[in-house]
Amino acid sequence: MHLGLTLFEEMVFEDGQLVNGSLLDYQVATIKDMPRSFRSVVVEVPHADGPFGAKGAGETGALTVAPAVANAIEDAVGVRIRDLPITPEKVLRALAEKDGATLPRDSSL
């Protein structure tokens, strides 16, 4: 879910009107968007007064996806994206700007 929120999910408003309010226009991640390989690492630290040491883990995996991806992108190509989602267009523009070029605003990338 947070990979989608990192890479493409965004409610787009024009003059207060939502313009992509259906699943034809609003993109959520499909099985094809899932990375080819990923691993979950669980670090167990007992909660002193949780039941049998337990605590909730529902949200933790979701929290840091976006900055981890943005940090990896800077590591790869040296550009920093500061507004989500990190779309191909934003990365391409940042790369062009880094090289001193600008891309036309209305290009249909």
């Binding site: 669980v42 949200e59 933790t60 996806v65």
Partner: peptide, 21 residues
């Protein structure tokens, strides 16, 4: 961080993914 009671197979699947990417 996570602690039991989720056994290795029934951790909240999908919810643990993505601490790093």
């Amino acid at each position: 961080t996570d602690r039991r009671p989720h056994g290795p197979g029934n951790r909240p699947v999908g919810k643990m993914h993505g601490v790093l990417v």
